[in-house]
């Protein structure tokens, strides 16, 4: 019981501290912008730990953060092998193939108006479908190893990327295109010097959406069959063994991988589309 009271106290302290910072004079500084969410996260973790200990919650229901950290530290080699199998081999190769293919198809689609009017509604439709459902079929076709995971990722990222890129390629004004024409620019020159650069904010929007889809696709595809490693495999087998600390450790890996991947793409975006209003420093 004392733990529960202590947890409530910690909550009140953390929240109170954040309220003071958020409404204080320093709220606009970048230290506060980073510090407040960190304090909040730390408070949640401490309360989690205290409640699990205090209420005697069994480890097969909710392991404490320290237990998860221990499992994480004790299984670094397994986690790294799983990460490599699922993320590097499955998700990342599928991401590159899928986004690359979608970008090229988008250029073709954009060139022929007929294709654009025909393929774009179909692409929009497919982008909203539960494409993870193709996982059992693709696992059957490409076997249990990473190739089938990459294939699922390709199918998942293709349409969001296609729709975004096509929208981006159309995002030039008549004035800009007329200017290129007065310069006597050919189709290729207009494409390379005006329209692809102008499409970059949209392309990166598609790339960012695709980062989380890629991880989801690779992990879910492993639920349908995989070799004896991989993040999805580890999660489903560890759940079966009620080794929930390992499941959480794997989820921590997925969270870190997902946010780093997203952060990386966002960083490249800043570097490529520095000219766009949304990237300007105020």
């Amino acid at each position: 019981m004392i733990y529960v009271l202590f947890a409530a106290l910690i909550w009140a302290m953390g929240w109170g501290l954040n309220t003071v910072i958020a409404n204080g004079r320093a709220a606009k500084t970048s230290a506060a912008q980073i510090g407040v969410p960190l304090i909040f996260g730390a408070t949640v973790l401490i309360i989690w730990e205290l409640l699990v200990t205090g209420l005697n919650i069994s480890a097969v229901i909710l392991p404490a953060p320290t237990a998860i950290a221990t499992a994480f530290g004790a299984n670094l080699t397994i986690l790294w092998a799983d990460f490599f199998q699922t993320f590097v081999k499955g998700a990342f190769s599928g991401y590159v193939i899928g986004c690359g293919a979608a970008f090229l198809v988008a250029i073709v689609v954009d060139r022929y108006d007929f294709l654009r009017r025909g393929l774009l509604p179909v692409g929009n439709f497919v982008a909203a479908l539960p494409i993870v459902g193709t996982a059992p079929i693709l696992v059957m076709w490409f076997g249990f190893d990473w190739q089938s995971k990459a294939a699922v990722v390709v199918v998942m990222v293709f349409f969001p990327m296609l729709v975004n890129t096509v929208a981006g390629l159309r995002d030039t004004s008549t004035m800009q295109r007329d200017l290129m024409r007065t310069y006597g620019a050919s189709y290729t020159q207009t494409l390379l010097k005006l329209r692809i650069p102008a499409a970059m904010p949209f392309v990166f929007n598609g790339l960012k959406i695709a980062t989380s889809l890629a991880l989801i696709g690779a992990i879910v595809a492993e639920f349908f069959g995989s070799p004896v490693l991989g993040m999805g495999f580890r999660i489903s087998t560890s759940v079966g063994q009620l080794a929930l600390d390992m499941v959480w450790a794997e989820i921590v890996v997925a969270a870190i991988a997902g946010s780093l991947f997203y952060g990386l793409v966002a960083k490249i975006e800043q570097w490529v589309t520095f000219w766009h209003p949304s990237q300007r420093k105020h």
Binding site: W15, N18, T19, I21, A22, N23, A27, A32, Q33, V36, P37, I39, F40, G41, V132, T211, S212, L215, I216, I219, V220, F223, M231, G232, I235, S236, V239, L244, V247, E250, I251, A254, A255, G258, S259, F261, Y262
Partner: peptide
């Protein structure tokens, strides 16, 4: 404002995490 500053960054970060992985658990 407190909620905005403490919760919102986590809501945004959570979008980049494959939450589906939690499903079996």
């Amino acid at each position: 404002k407190t909620m905005d500053m403490s919760v919102m960054p986590w809501a945004i970060v959570s979008q980049t995490i494959p939450i589906v992985a939690l499903a079996p658990m």
